[in-house]
Design a binder for these strands. Structure first.
Lengths: 357, 357
DNA sequence: TTGTATGCGTTATCAA
DNA sequence: TTGATAACGCATACAA
């Protein structure tokens, strides 16, 4: 034998030798096995301490057939929403003594497949797939037997079987969220309303069509639709431009990033929010509350969702069965961006086209 | 023997059997060993495909004595800055075929120690410690022999040995950043300047004392200092309140979160930015550019830093030696929040105390 | 309460 | 070009 690795690592055998016990006893002592006498337990503990023994998780996992690892697939760690989900997930995993592997996919399905492969190779005890564009069925097939939780799937399946989703599916109630938002705008008297979104994602379609339906049914209002690239929020001018030359009086945005960009873009065009245009976001990221005007938004329990996903997985590791699909409630947070201020001079409602068009 | 695990897993032995080769040959074939004939290579590949073979990374790591895993310690996945760092880190790791374990510590030193322990137990090939409050020396001791990159250490050591930091240390140039910011305010004619920060962190002390020095030396200005809790940005009123009853004309903030909250808090107090108070942030998070007014800030290359950290580690895995400490340049992004608009009626400079005081 | 022996699934050494 | 075989470091079934 003889790998060319000089770094001598302390193994359980060394600890056992120093403690004067067998390897098995040392193993049990360190594991806190009640059957080991207090004396040897201390002896082993001391030996481990002195030698600086650190168990090798790879060996343990191989033997124990479990890794105490959870896999988390998400599209972008930069995104506040995903950050929240990841944070909640990680926190919950940690308290259970689990470690989290995170793979960001950028929303590319090939990367998502690669991520799942990574998780399976590493024999994670559970896998969470967040905001994935992959067909949940495909995800399940690729994952195989281990527990799989799917959070906020961004696949057309969410459009059809509203609640007939497979166990382990966790979503926020998009329909309810958009309904609340649309109702809010109608109640405020708006009739020229637009929706701004990326235009392709399933979540986008769900939110948009819900708004469309609600506005039509309850207000007889036809929703105008503007489409912008997913990264358009980095270019506020483009976002505002998507509203066209004859801007609506209210805008429902696909998410807060877009809404915040819209706020900026409208300001650049000389349009005041909410006086000229009301804006509603979606997600409830922290910065929405700090915008000027403060952004009205559908507040979603993102961190809680991440935490719950982890708990589901951990429970499934024990029980072998996954919790039934669940729709988490959301709530509209009404703030300044959609509420006309009383102090302004009356409610002029002419198609305002101030500023540089 | 006989663990109670019914799920039959496909192992290399099965693949070898089906391909009619030895296990060794199968292993080599799948690894793309050039010495294996094209024929057997294909045969093994097909067998693996048919059987749905997925290699067991734990076994591989155990044997190969390397895990192709990188550990990333950070304090909070919700924070935009850390999200950027993590994203850059993960992206770089992925292209090298590495997997990332992320542990969030909440800035608690006990959690940081636990995180390092996790990494060592899992035999990560490299460890990155970001924004840690731990003494870098302690971190090195705990990590032992493996490569360790320390990103933005938040430990008093950064105050003393400016550039005499150990190899593998990666920082943005805080002193330069604050210098630029302070110079900017002086150039704009401000003389009543305050600094707002959490008051304890080493990074905070470094930024504050730099501002203090620059303002004093170049402008003869004494910096006022306001201290707010680290999570105060969630309570804008508290942030603005920390400026006292006689607000300054310009505020340097410890970070963008604080600055954005200050914007909101000042607005609630009836103070206009930048007309009554100029505000400068730090970090350059994306939302700073979308604030109203758009936030002047010191833009730091966070994602790049994460990416570089990963590359350093990957290089060290190969070479065994770590890159020398490095200070990444930062640049002031001057935006609306610190530049008085020309159109306002002159530059009145009296201590404005409008609104509800 | 402790020890013995075995196998987890790979890769690498050595011999063929 | 391929095959036996031996670790890698640990946990556990079984025996004592």
């Amino acid at each position: 034998v003889g790998d060319a690795h000089p770094a001598r690592r302390v193994t359980l055998a060394h600890v056992a030798a120093r403690a004067g016990t067998s390897q098995a006893t040392a193993s049990r002592a360190l594991a806190g096995d009640r059957r080991i006498s207090e004396a040897t337990r201390r002896a082993v503990g001391e030996a481990a301490e002195v030698l600086g023994y650190v168990p090798n998780v790879a060996a343990r996992s191989l033997r124990a057939r479990r890794t105490r690892t959870l896999g988390l697939l998400l599209s972008d760690l930069r995104d506040p929403v995903h950050g929240q989900v990841a944070a909640g997930f990680e926190e919950e995993a940690v308290v259970a003594g689990y470690t989290v592997i995170i793979v960001a996919t950028g929303g590319r399905i090939e990367e998502e497949r690669r991520a799942l492969r990574v998780f399976v190779e590493r024999r994670t005890d559970g896998i969470c797939v967040a905001s994935s564009v992959m067909d949940p069925t495909e995800a399940m097939e690729r994952v195989g037997s281990g527990p799989l939780v799917i959070v906020q799937p961004d696949h057309p399946c969410i459009l059809q079987a509203a609640d007939a989703l497979p166990p382990g599916t966790l979503r926020t109630d998009d329909a309810s969220g958009m309904e609340q938002a649309a109702d809010h705008l109608l109640a405020a008297g708006h009739r020229r309303i637009a929706y701004l979104g990326p235009g392709e994602k399933a979540t986008d379609i769900l939110r948009r069509s819900t708004a469309q339906r609600v506005l039509h049914e309850r207000g007889g209002v036809e929703l105008r639709v503007g489409v912008v690239p997913e990264d358009a929020w980095e270019r506020p001018g483009e976002v505002a431009g998507a509203l066209g030359q004859d801007p609506p009086h209210a805008v429902l945005c696909y998410d807060d990033k877009l809404a915040l960009a819209l706020l900026d873009g409208l300001r650049a065009r000389g349009l005041r929010v909410p006086d000229d245009v009301a804006v509603v976001g979606y997600d409830g990221i922290p910065f929405a509350a700090l915008a000027n005007p403060r952004l009205t938004t559908v507040s979603t329990p993102t961190a809680e969702m991440g935490g719950l996903a982890a708990r589901w997985l951990l429970d499934a590791v024990g029980s072998g069965s996954l919790a039934p699909a669940r729709l988490l409630p959301v709530a509209l947070a009404v703030r300044e961006s959609s509420v006309r201020r009383a102090r302004t001079t009356g409610r002029r409602r002419e198609p305002v086209m101030a500023g540089r068009g």
